[in-house]
Each structure stands twice: as structure tokens, then as C-alpha cells.
Write a protein that binds this DNA or RNA. Structure first.
Length: 263
DNA sequence: GCAAAATGTCAAG
DNA sequence: TTGACCTTTTGCA
């Protein structure tokens, strides 16, 4: 479930469990064997996250991980489970274990290599002092639809398909309007909303974008599906106005929106 | 048992 | 714009 909130949560988690610890690093699957050998036996000095990219610092090297669509971490207290299946990375501290499977990227980077990677990323609403103006300026100068720009990691880092659909709904914005046709204040409000949503995602460990009054409309058991306004709800009634939520394929991804609330 | 889908990205055409 | 890639889970036979 990797949008930016997942990655920042992992950075925090790995900090708590492993920073300051000497770790044993291996790649049971073998695909990361060479990289693992470079950091095996070193102390994890710190962790970092930018958008959907996760970093571990070991001496003068970075472990860089991008989960992609399928990547997943698991962790726990020793004893560690026997390696099973396609286990790209396994990390053991004196007290805890960590497993990584299915990432798009798991590699060792030098400082300049990491710097180069970061130049391709726009501001991340979850970082300390994000360059909001860079985001605003970029959107205001583009003919591209706002729904496309939100998915562009060079424009804003950390937003994925769920947050895109949900923030546009919450702000009452059509995904198809060109970036340059927005008022600056509207874009600032959207940024601020993303800060709130992403932070709450880090805290909760999942994406919840609906206001409490828009959830659990049925009496009885709470339903996880209530967590979203439009994402994954094609053909179902909009929670606000009852119009059928629509979806279409844009650049290979499903885009969801309410044609009434997002004219 | 197998196909399809999934919160992502990149390169080729 | 399309396909390839990383892996697991879900849904349907």
C-alpha cells in the first residue's frame, strides 16, 4: 500500500527498531546479494524518506528502496522466521528482524547518486520545509490536467492514485482541468489538505480521507470501504450527492471522480 | 489451479 | 501510449 505515508511510516519504524544497531544484511533470494554484502555488519546510522523513496544510511553509503506497486516490509522480534519465497532483503539486529519482498528498487547508492535521484523529485508535503512555491509555480505554468500533475513525482512527491482521487474530490476539483487554469489560493488549499491527509495516513498506517460524518452510514459494523470518497468506488453513489462515481483509464491508471461534486 | 488486479515507475515506440 | 517488471492476494472455476 505504498504512497508517501507508507514510506514515511516505514522510515520512522526502521529508525525505532534499527538505528544505532549493528545489522546482519543478506538477500536470501540472491538478487540483492552484492549490495547486501556492502552494508552487512555495519551500523544503521539513520533513515530518511522523500516521497515514495526510502533510505537507510550506512557509513558513506545509502540503501535506497522503492516499493513500487507490490513491495512490502515485515518486521518483528527475534527469532526471525525462516526465509520463504522471494525474499529480496533480510536484516537482523540483535533483537529484531526485517524482511523486504517485491520492491521496484533495492540498491546501494553513493552520496552523488542519491543527490541525483533527489533532483528528480518535487516537494514532499511530509517533509519539514517543503518548497510549496515550487509546486504552485509548476502547476500554474502547465497545460497538463491537474489529475495528471498530482501523479508526477517531479511536481509533488508522495502522492499516488488514492490520494490524487481523494484530494481532488475533497477540494471539489475536476481532474481534467489544466493546471494553469487554477487560482493560486485553490492550489495552496489543496497542498494544505494533502499535508493533513498524508500526516493522518502516517499516523493511522492507512489512507483515510472521509470525514467521520461520511463514514459508517449503515448501523452496525464499521466498514473499511468507508475510508474513501471516490477511490475504488466506480458505479457506486457519491457519499455527498448520490451521483454515480465515474472512472476512466488515464496514463494506464484508473482515475475516479464524482462528475457532480467535481465539475 | 489459474487469471487478474493492486496505493508505481521506466523505457521503447 | 503501451508493455515490462517486481510479488502477493483475491476471486472465480
Amino acid at each position: 500500500m505504498p504512497e508517501g505515508h507508507t514510506i514515511h511510516r516505514l522510515a520512522r519504524r526502521h529508525d525505532q527498531l534499527f538505528v544505532g544497531q549493528r545489522v546482519e544484511v543478506s538477500s536470501p533470494q540472491g538478487r540483492f546479494a552484492e549490495g547486501a554484502a556492502l552494508i552487512d555488519g555495519q551500523v544503521l546510522e539513520r533513515t530518511d524518506a522523500w516521497g515514495k523513496h526510502l533510505f537507510h544510511r550506512y557509513d558513506d553509503l545509502w540503501l535506497h528502496i522503492h516499493l513500487g506497486l507490490y513491495g512490502k516490509f515485515r518486521d518483528g522480534e527475534l527469532p526471525a522466521p525462516e526465509p520463504q519465497g522471494a525474499l529480496r532483503l533480510r536484516l537482523l539486529s540483535p533483537t529484531h528482524w526485517l524482511e523486504l519482498r517485491g520492491p521496484t528498487a533495492c540498491e546501494i547508492l553513493t552520496d552523488p547518486e542519491r543527490d541525483h535521484l533527489l533532483t528528480r523529485l518535487g516537494p514532499d508535503p511530509l517533509r519539514k520545509r517543503p518548497d510549496i512555491d515550487a509546486f504552485i509555480d509548476r502547476v500554474l505554468r502547465s497545460r497538463a490536467p491537474i489529475g495528471t500533475m498530482l501523479m508526477d513525482q517531479a511536481v509533488i512527491a508522495g502522492v499516488g492514485n488514492v490520494y490524487r482521487a481523494e484530494v481532488l474530490f475533497r477540494q471539489g476539483l475536476s481532474p481534467f482541468r489544466p493546471g494553469r487554469e487554477h487560482h493560486e489560493a485553490v492550489l495552496r488549499a489543496m497542498w494544505e489538505d494533502l499535508v493533513v491527509l498524508l500526516r493522518s495516513g502516517v499516523r493511522a498506517g492507512r489512507i483515510i480521507t472521509t470525514a467521520p460524518e461520511d463514514r459508517e452510514r449503515r448501523s452496525g459494523r464499521a466498514r473499511r470501504v468507508d475510508a474513501h470518497y471516490v477511490y475504488g468506488r466506480a458505479g457506486q453513489p457519491c457519499r455527498r450527492c448520490g451521483t454515480e462515481v465515474e472512472d476512466t483509464q488515464v496514463a494506464g491508471r484508473r482515475l475516479f471522480w464524482c462528475p457532480t461534486c467535481q465539475p
